[in-house]
Protein backbone atom coordinates (compact mmCIF):
# COMPACT_ATOMS: atom_id res chain seq x y z
CA UNK A 1 0.00 0.00 0.00
CA UNK A 2 1.28 3.44 -0.92
CA UNK A 3 0.79 6.31 1.52
CA UNK A 4 0.47 9.85 0.22
CA UNK A 5 1.49 12.70 2.52
CA UNK A 6 0.87 16.32 1.52
CA UNK A 7 3.32 18.75 3.16
CA UNK A 8 2.95 22.53 3.23
CA UNK A 9 5.65 25.15 3.51
CA UNK A 10 4.53 27.67 6.12
CA UNK A 11 5.94 30.36 8.34
CA UNK A 12 7.83 28.70 11.22
CA UNK A 13 5.65 28.31 14.32
CA UNK A 14 8.11 30.27 16.45
CA UNK A 15 7.90 33.39 14.30
CA UNK A 16 5.61 36.18 15.38
CA UNK A 17 3.92 37.38 12.21
CA UNK A 18 3.74 41.01 11.22
CA UNK A 19 0.85 42.42 9.27
CA UNK A 20 1.95 44.54 6.30
CA UNK A 21 1.26 48.24 6.56
CA UNK A 22 -0.68 48.23 3.28
CA UNK A 23 -3.03 45.58 4.70
CA UNK A 24 -2.46 43.16 1.82
CA UNK A 25 -1.21 40.31 3.97
CA UNK A 26 1.56 39.39 6.38
CA UNK A 27 5.23 40.03 5.85
CA UNK A 28 6.96 36.86 4.69
CA UNK A 29 10.18 38.48 3.46
CA UNK A 30 13.25 37.06 5.23
CA UNK A 31 11.08 35.04 7.59
CA UNK A 32 11.98 31.51 8.58
CA UNK A 33 9.79 28.98 6.78
CA UNK A 34 9.32 25.35 7.82
CA UNK A 35 7.15 22.35 7.23
CA UNK A 36 3.70 22.76 8.78
CA UNK A 37 4.07 21.00 12.19
CA UNK A 38 1.02 18.80 11.65
CA UNK A 39 2.52 17.60 8.35
CA UNK A 40 5.66 16.48 10.20
CA UNK A 41 3.36 14.30 12.28
CA UNK A 42 1.81 12.95 9.06
CA UNK A 43 5.19 12.14 7.56
CA UNK A 44 6.27 10.42 10.77
CA UNK A 45 3.14 8.28 10.87
CA UNK A 46 3.56 7.26 7.24
CA UNK A 47 7.20 6.28 7.77
CA UNK A 48 6.28 4.23 10.82
CA UNK A 49 3.72 2.35 8.72
CA UNK A 50 6.39 1.53 6.19
CA UNK A 51 8.82 0.47 8.91
CA UNK A 52 6.15 -1.86 10.29
CA UNK A 53 5.64 -3.34 6.83
CA UNK A 54 2.14 -1.92 6.50
CA UNK A 55 3.06 0.53 3.75
CA UNK A 56 5.30 -0.04 0.78
CA UNK A 57 6.08 3.50 -0.26
CA UNK A 58 5.69 6.99 1.21
CA UNK A 59 5.16 9.80 -1.29
CA UNK A 60 5.45 13.42 -0.10
CA UNK A 61 3.58 16.05 -2.12
CA UNK A 62 3.83 19.79 -1.87
CA UNK A 63 1.89 22.42 -3.76
CA UNK A 64 3.60 25.77 -3.82
CA UNK A 65 6.56 27.76 -5.11
CA UNK A 66 9.93 26.26 -6.08
CA UNK A 67 11.05 26.52 -2.42
CA UNK A 68 8.32 24.08 -1.41
CA UNK A 69 10.79 21.58 -2.87
CA UNK A 70 12.83 22.13 0.32
CA UNK A 71 9.85 21.07 2.37
CA UNK A 72 9.65 17.89 0.32
CA UNK A 73 13.40 17.35 0.92
CA UNK A 74 12.74 17.58 4.65
CA UNK A 75 10.11 14.85 4.32
CA UNK A 76 12.55 12.77 2.25
CA UNK A 77 15.23 13.27 4.88
CA UNK A 78 12.81 12.04 7.54
CA UNK A 79 12.33 8.92 5.43
CA UNK A 80 9.76 9.47 2.69
CA UNK A 81 10.69 7.66 -0.54
CA UNK A 82 9.98 10.20 -3.25
CA UNK A 83 8.35 13.54 -3.84
CA UNK A 84 5.98 15.38 -6.14
CA UNK A 85 6.18 19.16 -6.35
CA UNK A 86 3.19 20.85 -7.94
CA UNK A 87 4.58 24.25 -8.78
CA UNK A 88 2.48 27.34 -8.43
CA UNK A 89 3.08 30.84 -7.13
CA UNK A 90 0.61 32.65 -4.96
CA UNK A 91 -1.89 31.34 -2.45
CA UNK A 92 -3.76 28.16 -3.24
CA UNK A 93 -7.02 27.65 -1.38
CA UNK A 94 -7.84 24.37 0.35
CA UNK A 95 -10.42 23.38 -2.28
CA UNK A 96 -7.91 23.81 -5.12
CA UNK A 97 -5.30 21.87 -3.11
CA UNK A 98 -7.85 19.09 -2.60
CA UNK A 99 -8.59 18.99 -6.34
CA UNK A 100 -4.89 18.70 -7.20
CA UNK A 101 -4.44 15.99 -4.57
CA UNK A 102 -7.39 14.14 -6.05
CA UNK A 103 -5.57 14.10 -9.40
CA UNK A 104 -2.44 12.75 -7.71
CA UNK A 105 -4.45 10.10 -5.85
CA UNK A 106 -5.99 8.95 -9.13
CA UNK A 107 -2.53 8.66 -10.68
CA UNK A 108 -0.79 7.03 -7.71
CA UNK A 109 -3.62 4.98 -6.17
CA UNK A 110 -2.51 5.19 -2.51
CA UNK A 111 -4.44 3.24 0.13
CA UNK A 112 -4.12 6.04 2.65
CA UNK A 113 -3.65 9.80 2.51
CA UNK A 114 -2.40 11.45 5.70
CA UNK A 115 -2.77 15.23 5.94
CA UNK A 116 -2.26 17.59 8.85
CA UNK A 117 -5.49 18.72 10.53
CA UNK A 118 -4.71 22.33 9.76
CA UNK A 119 -1.93 24.50 8.39
CA UNK A 120 -0.74 27.03 10.93
CA UNK A 121 -0.79 29.88 8.41
CA UNK A 122 -4.40 30.06 7.19
CA UNK A 123 -5.78 27.83 9.99
CA UNK A 124 -8.49 26.57 7.61
CA UNK A 125 -8.77 22.93 8.70
CA UNK A 126 -10.41 21.85 5.42
CA UNK A 127 -8.08 20.14 2.95
CA UNK A 128 -8.21 16.53 4.16
CA UNK A 129 -11.97 16.54 4.53
CA UNK A 130 -12.43 18.13 1.09
CA UNK A 131 -10.15 15.58 -0.52
CA UNK A 132 -12.07 12.72 1.10
CA UNK A 133 -15.38 14.14 -0.12
CA UNK A 134 -14.13 14.66 -3.68
CA UNK A 135 -12.89 11.07 -3.77
CA UNK A 136 -16.00 9.68 -2.09
CA UNK A 137 -13.71 8.25 0.59
CA UNK A 138 -14.27 8.11 4.34
CA UNK A 139 -12.21 10.30 6.61
CA UNK A 140 -10.92 10.25 10.16
CA UNK A 141 -9.93 13.71 11.27
CA UNK A 142 -7.86 14.81 14.29
CA UNK A 143 -6.22 11.40 14.65
CA UNK A 144 -4.77 10.44 18.00
CA UNK A 145 -4.07 6.78 17.26
CA UNK A 146 -4.17 4.64 14.13
CA UNK A 147 -4.65 0.90 13.84
CA UNK A 148 -4.61 -0.56 10.36
CA UNK A 149 -5.99 -3.97 9.58
CA UNK A 150 -7.29 -5.72 6.50
CA UNK A 151 -9.18 -3.22 4.37
CA UNK A 152 -9.99 -0.94 7.27
CA UNK A 153 -8.58 1.41 9.86
CA UNK A 154 -9.61 2.01 13.44
CA UNK A 155 -8.76 5.58 14.28
CA UNK A 156 -9.03 7.27 17.64
CA UNK A 157 -9.85 10.97 17.24
CA UNK A 158 -9.43 13.99 19.50
CA UNK A 159 -12.88 15.57 19.87
CA UNK A 160 -14.29 18.36 22.02
CA UNK A 161 -15.54 15.95 24.68
CA UNK A 162 -12.53 13.62 24.77
CA UNK A 163 -11.66 10.76 22.43
CA UNK A 164 -13.75 8.95 19.84
CA UNK A 165 -12.96 5.88 17.76
CA UNK A 166 -14.26 5.42 14.25
CA UNK A 167 -13.76 2.55 11.86
CA UNK A 168 -13.28 3.53 8.24
CA UNK A 169 -12.91 1.44 5.11
CA UNK A 170 -9.72 1.81 3.11
CA UNK A 171 -8.79 3.77 1.13
CA UNK A 172 -9.32 6.72 3.45
CA UNK A 173 -8.03 10.14 4.39
CA UNK A 174 -6.71 10.66 7.91
CA UNK A 175 -5.84 14.08 9.34
CA UNK A 176 -3.34 14.25 12.18
CA UNK A 177 -3.60 15.83 15.60
CA UNK A 178 -0.77 16.75 17.95
CA UNK A 179 -0.55 13.59 19.98
CA UNK A 180 -0.49 10.97 17.22
CA UNK A 181 3.30 10.67 17.48
CA UNK A 182 6.48 12.64 18.02
CA UNK A 183 8.15 13.33 14.68
CA UNK A 184 11.79 12.31 14.35
CA UNK A 185 14.64 14.59 13.42
CA UNK A 186 16.39 13.80 10.18
CA UNK A 187 19.91 12.45 10.75
CA UNK A 188 22.80 13.85 8.76
CA UNK A 189 23.27 10.68 6.68
CA UNK A 190 19.57 10.71 5.89
CA UNK A 191 19.72 14.35 4.85
CA UNK A 192 22.52 13.39 2.44
CA UNK A 193 20.56 10.40 1.15
CA UNK A 194 17.48 12.55 0.63
CA UNK A 195 19.36 14.65 -1.91
CA UNK A 196 19.37 11.67 -4.25
CA UNK A 197 15.71 10.80 -3.89
CA UNK A 198 13.55 11.78 -6.87
CA UNK A 199 11.16 14.74 -6.91
CA UNK A 200 8.76 14.93 -9.85
CA UNK A 201 7.75 18.40 -10.94
CA UNK A 202 4.20 19.06 -12.05
CA UNK A 203 1.84 21.98 -12.48
CA UNK A 204 -1.82 22.39 -11.48
CA UNK A 205 -2.67 22.30 -15.20
CA UNK A 206 -1.34 18.71 -15.34
CA UNK A 207 -4.32 17.84 -13.15
CA UNK A 208 -6.70 20.21 -14.91
CA UNK A 209 -7.09 22.40 -11.84
CA UNK A 210 -7.57 26.16 -11.90
CA UNK A 211 -5.96 27.54 -8.74
CA UNK A 212 -7.28 31.09 -9.00
CA UNK A 213 -8.45 32.00 -5.49
CA UNK A 214 -12.22 32.14 -5.12
CA UNK A 215 -12.26 33.97 -1.81
CA UNK A 216 -11.27 37.59 -2.26
CA UNK A 217 -9.05 38.89 0.53
CA UNK A 218 -10.18 42.50 0.95
CA UNK A 219 -7.68 43.28 3.68
CA UNK A 220 -5.54 41.82 6.41
CA UNK A 221 -5.34 43.76 9.65
CA UNK A 222 -3.90 43.44 13.12
CA UNK A 223 -6.17 42.13 15.84
CA UNK A 224 -7.07 44.51 18.66
CA UNK A 225 -4.08 44.69 21.01
CA UNK A 226 -4.34 43.79 24.66
CA UNK A 227 -2.50 46.08 27.01
CA UNK A 228 -0.39 44.52 29.72
CA UNK A 229 -2.03 45.27 33.04
CA UNK A 230 -0.51 45.51 36.47
CA UNK A 231 1.53 43.28 38.72
CA UNK A 232 0.05 42.43 42.09
CA UNK A 233 2.21 41.49 45.06
CA UNK A 234 0.12 38.96 46.90
CA UNK A 235 -2.65 36.44 46.38
CA UNK A 236 -4.90 38.52 48.62
CA UNK A 237 -4.33 41.56 46.44
CA UNK A 238 -5.05 39.52 43.31
CA UNK A 239 -8.38 38.32 44.69
CA UNK A 240 -9.26 41.80 45.86
CA UNK A 241 -8.66 43.17 42.34
CA UNK A 242 -10.63 40.37 40.71
CA UNK A 243 -13.53 40.90 43.09
CA UNK A 244 -13.65 44.63 43.64
CA UNK A 245 -11.98 46.17 40.60
CA UNK A 246 -12.80 43.76 37.76
CA UNK A 247 -15.92 42.32 39.36
CA UNK A 248 -15.37 38.90 37.83
CA UNK A 249 -15.49 36.67 40.91
Amino acid sequence: MKVLVPVKRVIDYNVKVRVKADQTGVDLANVKMSMNPFDEISVEEAIRLREKGKATEVIAVSIGPQQAGETIRTALAMGADRGILVKTDGDVEPLAVAKILKGIVEAEQPGLVITGKQAIDDDSNQTGQMLAALLGWPQATFAHKLELSDGKADIEREIDGGLQTVEVKLPCVMTTDLRLNEPRYASLPNIMKAKKKPIDEKTPADYGVDVTPRLKVLKVTEPPKRQAGMKVKTVAELLDKLKNEAGVI
Partner: peptide, 8 residues
Protein backbone atom coordinates in the same frame (compact mmCIF):
# COMPACT_ATOMS: atom_id res chain seq x y z
CA UNK B 1 -5.28 33.64 10.37
CA UNK B 2 -1.80 32.92 11.77
CA UNK B 3 -3.13 31.92 15.20
CA UNK B 4 -5.19 35.07 15.37
CA UNK B 5 -2.18 37.33 14.90
CA UNK B 6 -3.84 38.70 11.78
CA UNK B 7 -7.46 39.12 10.81
CA UNK B 8 -8.43 38.62 7.18
Amino acid sequence: IYAGNAIA
